[in-house]
Design a protein around this nucleic acid. Structure first.
Lengths: 215, 215
DNA sequence: GTCTATAAACCGATAGAC
DNA sequence: GTCTATCGGTTTATAGAC
């Protein structure tokens, strides 16, 4: 179904290209709907309507609602992983970590962040049983964990905080509802919101002595 | 329906007491289910089963699922407001604010925090049209806004941060999924989790010069 | 593969007996 | 007010024609 491996040829046939294009369109729609309404409120009728095909056609590409959501989330994690791996080597660990959060908040604001860390979604356990997703997530966690350790060793992140706390906080801030509230308020640009969130995430809200006038 | 005003008598009749008791039991169940699964995944069958009555009886007390959820949320906000108002006057504004967050995280960890700031829940707009809820929420916001301003004036909170950002962050941290992750991890006690969350919320995750050994 | 039409399950809400 | 039984609507998933 999602098998795009064609051993002995670099180019895909026209039919395969069309198939791949259609599947990408489906995943785009799912991604958008997951960001807007979350898994439970998203219906397959909506997905089909947004793609512009019949619902039955949808089930020729993916065998269930859970499967299509898992595929969408997996594609998203792959993007996050590839973005993270592409960060230049010369950056300091703390700046790499901040870049990841910055990227995630920006994606969130653009309305294409599937609601990841919602313990209250019925897809959570399905996702944790979906190996491609878990695998990529573990690789991302490994990479971030390394940088967190380095940043703690160099004193850029607090060594007194358990690594898991920092890791979970980074993941959680990527879907922080504060971004939605501020965007709905309309008083700030997306760039402002990103910087405000990254600041409160890493520096907190207390007065820091080294602060200049603005933030 | 929720009319408990009996003008000329301090005591409620037995029937009224029983009615009130039953309604409290319903709201308790709704509160628990809202915390566990959120509004959309909560079913009226579950609520009825948890209370131990038939679903039709539920509808004698509340006219709809939306109404019963709104009543539960309103009762919760009233508790938060009353807890906030009861904070001793001699406390510094920053400590009052921290106390509110501490209380909220503790409630969250106890499994009785209805999922408030979920922009992706279908009850959000219903709630904002429910006057008793909005009224209490505004009073709470007013109180917190005052303390935030005072804490910024005295330099305990960063004056460079817009007040709305601090306010929204306080609300958001009360339902932070990080608490769930850490609790599921099992490596920390509830007290530990509360302190870790409050710390990252106010002090951030960077190394603060004034830090002693632990946190 | 795509469509229309429909089955099967679930859920919010109600009817009517007691 | 509480119950059982059921309606009406929605949603996931599929059958079958093209």
């Amino acid at each position: 179904m999602t098998d795009s491996s064609t051993p002995a040829s670099k180019k895909l046939s026209f039919k395969q290209q069309q198939h791949q294009f259609r599947e990408d369109a489906i995943l785009d729609a799912v991604n958008r709907l997951l960001a807007q309404k979350g898994y439970d409120l998203m219906t397959m009728d909506e997905v089909a309507a947004e793609v512009g095909i019949a619902k039955a056609s949808l089930y020729k590409h993916f065998e269930s609602k859970e499967a299509v959501a898992a595929a969408s989330m997996t594609r998203f994690i792959e993007e996050a992983l590839s973005m993270t791996r592409d960060l230049p080597d010369h950056m300091k660990p703390i700046d790499k970590i901040k870049s990841v959060v910055r990227w995630a908040v920006r994606v969130h604001l653009s309305g294409t962040m599937p609601s990841l860390p919602s313990t209250r979604s019925s897809i959570q356990q399905t996702l944790l049983a979906h190996e491609p997703y878990v695998e990529k997530l573990e690789q991302l966690t490994l990479l971030l964990g390394e940088w967190i350790g380095q940043a703690q060793d160099s004193g850029e992140l607090s060594p007194a905080l358990p690594g898991e706390v920092i890791l979970y906080t980074i993941y959680a801030r990527s879907c922080d509802p504060v971004a939605d509230f501020l965007k709905n308020g309309g008083a700030f640009s997306d760039d402002d919101i990103v910087e405000l969130l990254v600041h409160t995430c890493f520096e907190g809200m207390v007065r820091t002595p080294a602060l200049p006038g603005r933030i």
